[in-house]
Design a protein around this nucleic acid. Structure first.
Length: 297
DNA sequence: CGAAAGACCTGTGCGC
DNA sequence: TGCGCACAGGTCTTTC
């Protein structure tokens, strides 16, 4: 469930609660949580200090400095980062080290200041943590394993023109393209449906039939719905998605179509429909978003 | 290279 | 009460 706004909420929490603190010890309680990591995660983290909290799309990372929290002058090496993806149900929680162990606790990390520890809790185990080198070069440094992900639409590096060009070269449906993280990152099933409703586009609309102005409108709606969700702390349907303090956002009250099967469209009152799509659900308004004749699954 | 399908996971809720 | 099953769905891998 966590998409860009939810991950950004978590990033802000990490920035204020974890950055600048030195790792005393880390413990992996479930091997699947570190399946993409190349080494021994506790050894890689011990004695290192997350300098900040960064994000691209749904990926988070904490650039790692050696040694203590003191900020040193001089050239910064490309270095390494602790990378996190929350998957479907991952949570990064900042909690008292003595608080009870969560049922699905996968990784925990204590700090030398003896303060709150960082816990990675993940019921469905699609999320993971890893330590990885950063890319070097003129572009924004990102962890190497996520270098294939496109910038997200709230990033300065996102290129609207390039997105429009690549989108029109695709031969697929617009929603499939929105969910392709190598084209645009950070969009998941919920915000794809919401942005398509706002732009009055059916999910199966062939990408090559979209005009430049329509693509610009869709991008504007993607940004608008994500920004609004962020202002409300994100979307949550159950207790699975929470910020680092365990609190849920409340953007779900503002959703126009997602999860609203048979409820009236907020624009025209027509009952919202649910359709199967890519082994998941698509919600749309039959009147505002008519299915195109040349629909593409 | 791109498009699409399959695999990976566990808890919840429903019908029978 | 309990069983089987659909569903939730992001991303990596495989196949064509």
């Amino acid at each position: 469930m966590p998409e860009l706004p939810e991950v950004e909420v978590v990033r802000r929490g990490l920035e204020s609660w974890v950055a600048g603190r030195t790792v005393a010890a880390a413990e992996v309680l479930h091997p699947r949580a570190v399946r993409r990591n190349a080494g021994d995660l506790p050894a890689q983290l011990k004695g290192r200090t997350p300098a900040s909290a960064e994000r691209r799309g749904k990926y988070l990372w904490l650039p790692l400095r050696d040694g203590g929290p003191a900020e040193g002058p001089g050239e910064e090496e490309p270095g390494e980062a602790l990378v996190a993806h929350l998957g479907m149900s991952g949570q990064l929680l900042v909690v008292d080290p003595l608080s009870p162990i969560e049922k699905h606790l996968r990784v925990r990390m204590g700090f030398t200041d003896g303060g709150p520890e960082l816990r990675f809790v993940d019921q469905r185990t699609f999320g993971h943590l890893l330590v990885a080198p950063m890319t070097s070069g003129p572009a924004r440094p990102v962890p190497e394993p996520i270098a294939h992900i496109a910038p997200d639409p709230l990033e300065a590096a996102f290129d609207d023109e390039r997105f429009a060009e690549r989108l029109r070269l695709r031969r697929t449906g617009i929603k499939r393209a929105l969910l392709d993280q190598s084209l645009i990152s950070g969009v998941g099933n919920i915000y794809a449906d919401e942005a398509l409703w706002r732009a009055r586009l059916h999910w199966a609309r062939p990408t090559e039939t979209l005009t430049r102005p329509k693509i610009a409108e869709l991008l504007a709606e993607v940004r608008a719905v994500m920004t609004e969700a962020l202002e409300q702390g994100g979307t949550s349907f159950d207790s699975l998605y929470v910020n680092v303090n365990g609190e849920s956002g409340y953007f779900d009250r503002s959703l126009a179509v997602y999860g609203r099967r048979d409820e009236p469209c907020r624009r025209c009152g027509t009952p919202i429909r649910r359709e199967a799509f890519m082994n998941r659900s698509s919600y749309s308004c039959p009147k505002c978003q008519p299915r195109p004749r040349n629909a593409r699954p």
